[in-house]
Amino acid sequence: MPGDSRRVRGPEESQSPLLYAVPAQLPVGRTGRGAGEPRAVFVRAGLLSHAAGSAYIEAGGTKVLCAVSGPREWGGAGGERRGRLLCDLRWAPFSRAGAWSSSAASSRQAGLLLQESLEASLRLERYPRAELAVWALVLEDRGSALPAAVSCASLALADAGVEMYDLVVGAGLSRGAEGEELRLDPDDSEEEAGATMYLSLLPALNQVSGLLCSGEWEGDTSVAAVRMCMEGCQRLYPVLQQSLVKATKRKIPAPQPQSG
């Protein structure tokens, strides 16, 4: 997002009062849902009129909107027989808790992560010399924004009628300090607390298309975390399928039976 030049940032030495606040004692366990239980999800595909395909996902407080345009012309580099995928993932200035920030650098990296996760599922050789553009916008980030953005982008691509091998479903996981339990679909306080992992899966083919984790993982905890993320993806898959079927029925009339 282009920086807002009219904004007065305040004097150089200003600091946020949150830094001096006494950190609240967070409850040790998770309240309201189990450790392996994701938040309730609301998904809708085909809502923007001008985009070739679009999707919106709400998971807990995290809201992501995605639009797809293309395939459009692209001067391929040196006889490319494969199309190209361009991804852009941005956070709205008011999406994160805390001070306003326009971190252009992190959104460039997030766009690359999105591209890596989605490219494995698309049949780009069916679109030579063409380019597909995916724009994802995080309206509110209350934890697990990247997995939600991947699921949303994949749904938008399917809604646009782009040929793909399978939908891509994303899941996030976090673990507090050493030895604590693994929590699926963390919200923002759980995400900042400790080690995090993001995984995106092609459910029908059972292939992992994106993986990123940080923090410390002793012994076999990383393997257990990957398995938990995969389970989370499989749980979300039917919801995405249903919303896609509904959107297709709304958008395209059923073919009339012919005789001849």
Partner: peptide, 23 residues
């Protein structure tokens, strides 16, 4: 032997079993 960061790069996808072997 502690794993601190893990990332998958590239255009293709990986089988979950091969990820465990790679780790």
């Amino acid at each position: 032997g502690t794993l601190t960061c893990m990332r998958k790069i590239g255009k293709g996808s990986l089988d979950p079993e091969s990820i465990f072997e790679m780790i």
